[in-house]
Design a protein around this nucleic acid. Structure first.
Lengths: 106, 106
DNA sequence: ACGATACGTCACTGATTGGTTACGTATCAA
DNA sequence: TTGATACGTAACCAATCAGTGACGTATCGT
């Protein structure tokens, strides 16, 4: 796999738990980098890199405010993930049904 | 991040496009490894490894049938992904609304 | 019993990842 | 202007990843 445009891949961006935590945090509202770095007990450059990945996936936007860069959630690309996983809902509902039947039979 | 139990991480398992394609394929029904390897123009060991990752994430199950190993979709863990992303639906609907308003204003 | 088939796994490789420290730049406050 | 602050980025490192070919094992057909 030569992952063309892997930078823009939403699935990959979201596969990292720290990145998901950042997104989760941004649901409460925009935040500057330092605020995020403080919450996740990781070095600032590390967070900065994660934000870079999220930016390339268009999951966050950067706004300059003085010497701060405020990051804001841009949830639209997550529709892609939702859309993909939604195609499996009927399948796991079947699984749930089977489990239910199995339990009832006992 | 020291990714404890990273093997079992559904998000990571699903972040690879080949692995998603395998899952997509398995929605049409269980399949032996060779059938999959043929469809994705990758070497059999490569597919075998991907299946290993999916297995550890409990997204597929392996059933032995003679000398074949039939893999079957196990969609339940995808609920985790669906659940996470669902928390963002209201946010992107706001975005869609803003976009709509913006277009109407023009 | 024997060859072909269907697979898992090992050993290896190159690319990518997540993390670090060090440094540069822009902004604010004095 | 000068120093502190808020950040991006480059250089680097160890670990992980996706892929390969080589090998071993179990099963089927004969």
């Amino acid at each position: 796999m030569h992952r063309a445009l892997a930078h823009a891949d939403v699935f990959r961006a979201v596969s990292d738990p720290t990145r998901r935590a950042i997104l989760d945090r941004l649901r409460a509202g925009p935040a500057p980098v330092n605020a995020l770095a403080a919450e996740f007990s990781q070095s600032r450059p590390a967070i900065s890199k994660h934000l870079g990945v999220l930016r390339k996936a268009h999951l966050v936007s950067e706004r300059r405010a003085g010497r701060e860069r405020v990051y804001e959630l841009r949830p639209m690309p997550l529709q892609q993930v939702a859309g993909w996983v939604e195609g499996y809902r009927s399948f796991w509902q079947v699984s749930l049904n089977n489990l239910k039947k199995h339990l009832e039979k006992k």
